[in-house]
Amino acid sequence: MEKHLNLTLQVWRQKNAQDPGGFKNYEAKGISTEMSFLEMLDVVNEGIIKKGEAPITFDHDCREGICGACGMVINGRPHGLRERTTACQLHMRSFNDGDVITLEPWRASAFPVLRDLLVDRSSFDRIIAAGGFISAPTGSAQDANCLPIPKDNADRAMDAAACIGCGACVAACPNASAMLFVGAKVSHLGLLPQGQPERTSRALDMVAQMDAEGFGTCTNHGECEASCPKGISLDNIAMLNRDYLKASLTYRPEVESGGF
């Protein structure tokens, strides 16, 4: 049944990367329980714009939980309290009349705040560019059924590939580690025969980039899996560790010519 809520929002406002930022309170009145969380923010923003002020800025796009654009810390939890849910798929019926809701951006040095709740996640793109791919230039592929893949491996690869790159894992981690994100990609590609030729360099290059971006290391808190809207498993971190260790032991640097 539709109800209407009066809420108080404590929102992190920060004009740009240089601004120190701070919390500001907003009243959200008459919010329908049928609204999504982001629609509630839309309503608040319409009021702010009508006052001539800059609206609360946050990333969002598909609003159906698949693009990975949205993400904010809601009452201390990335994407809010509901499990396996992106902020855009959270609905106001999860809240009660009179609630005070605190909204913060992802907090990680590798995700600098650009404005309010919106952060720069381009470090994730650079990690992918460092090795999160299979080199298969357009046109070079053989027939798709030439290489059978055991169903189980294909399914596990799919589970890892379901990562939406939202960054909640980093925001939830006390070390701001990106190991779940990197592990998911290393698993996705490493479980497939097509991913084998670059498996060694992939693990090394992605981890090197992850370190260079300033992400922390994994100390097995498991907060990442708990806050992941797609339920990406910690097993992927185990696979990354295995691949990385193996790669570190077997890696041979490229030589100028010949080799042995």
């Binding site: 299979i134 070079s140 053989q142 059978p148 169903k151 294909a154 399914d155 590609l189 497939l192 097509q194």
Partner: peptide, 22 residues
């Protein structure tokens, strides 16, 4: 037909049957 080949080569995890084929 080329699209499917290309995507599989890139590692797109299409659904498969128990025999390993698409």
């Amino acid at each position: 037909v080329n699209i499917i080949d290309q995507c599989v080569a890139q590692g797109v995890p299409f659904a498969r049957e128990y025999g390993g084929l698409l």
